[in-house]
């Protein structure tokens, strides 16, 4: 029906589609889309009447990682959201046709987006952990990480980036504090899940007294 050529201006290509689809609520924010700014026209992702779902050239996430190569690498890491298994789609979190916020997420804030699936983290808790309330991405990598959960780095070092205090938070935990250390040197602040061995309610707690304040109950 249309014969797009490679070097044609992306806006001109998309204009043909928008001539019919401009009143579609699904693409009413195309003018704000990062895809538009980066010269991605409709035909990069859609074919004309291919018979596939939404006339997409490929399924998600294969379609998206054709361009987003660094995300491909993250989705393959050992801790990841189940996109490559086909149980989630990129478009569950991102509005590919444009949204108001950064990364075109389908929410007014990162936390609001995460709480859609992780409603148990929503609280409001009596004892709050401020970085949790401000931005989940302070500690988590959404697409995938080498570290379980998927965290930006491993506890205890992740926690020590913010917590350096007398008694245990500021102590140096090394190879000697792992299971391989001696009975005297091995520490439950280092082996296995490290800080999270005890501070499990790190997303917020209703626990009593300092047990709740320190997220151990």
């Amino acid at each position: 029906m249309f014969a797009f050529v490679r070097q044609a201006d992306a806006d001109q290509k998309s204009a043909r589609c928008l001539a019919c689809h401009q009143d579609s609520r699904a693409i009413s924010f195309w003018n704000m889309s990062r895809h538009k700014v980066n010269g991605i026209s409709c035909d990069k992702c859609h074919t004309v009447h291919s018979g596939t779902s939404k006339n997409l050239r490929a399924k998600e996430p294969a379609l998206c990682i054709t361009c987003h190569l660094s995300i491909r690498a993250q989705l393959s890491k050992q801790s990841h959201h189940p996109l490559k298994e086909g149980l989630m789609k990129c478009t569950q979190c991102h509005a590919q046709h444009g949204e108001f916020g950064s990364k075109m997420i389908k929410a007014d804030s990162v936390n609001e987006l995460c709480f859609k699936c992780h409603a148990e983290k929503r609280g409001p808790f009596m004892w709050e952990h401020p970085p949790v309330e401000e931005n989940c991405l302070t500690c988590h990598v959404p697409h995938g990480s080498n570290h379980t959960k998927p965290l930006t780095s491993r506890p205890p070092l992740l926690c020590q980036k913010c917590h350096d205090a007398p008694q245990h938070p500021g102590n140096i935990y090394t190879n000697f504090e792992t299971f391989r250390g001696t009975a005297a040197s091995s520490k439950n602040r280092m082996f296995a899940r490290a800080c999270l061995n005890c501070h499990s309610n790190i997303h917020g707690s209703m626990g009593p007294s300092t047990r709740g304040k320190h997220f151990v109950r």
């Binding site: 245990h168 899940r193 999270l196 061995n197 005890c198 499990s200 309610n201």
Partner: peptide, 9 residues
């Protein structure tokens, strides 16, 4: 999950 048996230490 994990819980500190007694706290601290």
């Amino acid at each position: 999950i994990g819980a500190a048996g007694t706290t601290p230490g």
